[in-house]
Every structure is written in structure tokens, then in C-alpha cells.
């Protein structure tokens, strides 16, 4: 899976699933010994700048609380940023990202989690639209 897409999906994956998979990877002796923490998980903010449509000007809408972490496994870097203040899960997500880069067997397990996450998001989006579309006002236009 494309690394960018993986980061997007690990950012949205279920917290328990992410931690459980990371826990399983950590029990591999090789992963545990080759793990380097590059940046410990840190809670902080991302300033959201938006471009408004009238003058095409940027302005600051406000800040979003995120947690960020970066690790390496066997020299392969892994990075994660997730909304909220959960340092453990963010560290786990960074670990999964690094493992996916480091080892294709582990990578396919991470991909599975991502695919599953994508399916869940699609279902939610679909369900949301099914509910919403009934609130659209329909007009009968005379042609």
C-alpha cells in the first residue's frame, strides 16, 4: 500500500486494533530489538489554515489537537499523527508504519488493517449519506 494512504488510514484506524497489532509485532524479538524511538509520542496542535473562496485568502480557523510520533525499526522510519491525545495508540501506529516499511510479511498485516479501516470508513460514509439524502428537498420543475 502507498505510504501516504497508509498514514491516512492508520490515523483513522480503530485504536484497539492498532494497539493489538503493534503489541503482536513487539513480541517478535527482532522488532523489539531493532526499535528506535526517533520522536516519542507528543501531544500538540496543528494550526488549521484555510483558503476562503471570496478573496482566496488564507486565515487561521483554529487549532486541532493531535498526537505525533516517529520511530524506526531496523533503520526503516515510521511516522504517525492521530487526532486526539492518545500517545500509546499513536506510538503503535508509528510502529506499524515502520514495520510495514521494514518487513513485507508484517507489511501485509498492516495493509489488512488499513483495508479493513477503509471499508469501515466507506460503510460509515455510505450510511451517513443514506440518512442525509432523504433530507434533500426535491423540486418538481416543469420543463
Amino acid at each position: 500500500m502507498d505510504r501516504n494512504r497508509r498514514a491516512e488510514l492508520l490515523a483513522r484506524a480503530d485504536a484497539d486494533d492498532v494497539r493489538q497489532l503493534a503489541e503482536a509485532f513487539l513480541s517478535h524479538r527482532q522488532v523489539a530489538t531493532e526499535l528506535d524511538i526517533i520522536a516519542p509520542p507528543e501531544v500538540g496542535m496543528v494550526m488549521m489554515q484555510v483558503r476562503e473562496p471570496v478573496c482566496k485568502e488564507r486565515f487561521h480557523l483554529g487549532e486541532v489537537v493531535v498526537t505525533r510520533a516517529e520511530v524506526a525499526v531496523g533503520g526503516a522510519r515510521g511516522w504517525a499523527m492521530r487526532a486526539g491525545t492518545d500517545r500509546e495508540t499513536t506510538l503503535a501506529a508509528a510502529l506499524l508504519d515502520a514495520c510495514a516499511e521494514h518487513d513485507s510479511a508484517l507489511g501485509s498485516q498492516v495493509d489488512d488493517l488499513c483495508v479493513e479501516t477503509k471499508a469501515r470508513l466507506d460503510r460509515a460514509r455510505h450510511q451517513e449519506w443514506t440518512e442525509l439524502r432523504s433530507t434533500a428537498v426535491s423540486f418538481e420543475e416543469l420543463d
Binding site: E23, L26, I37
Partner: peptide, 10 residues
């Protein structure tokens, strides 16, 4: 868990 140990050290 192992994860928490890693986090604690980190």
C-alpha cells in the same frame, strides 16, 4: 503491555 513499556521508556 509491551507497548506501554516502550512508551514508558520513550
Amino acid at each position: 503491555s509491551l507497548l506501554q513499556q516502550v512508551l514508558g521508556e520513550a
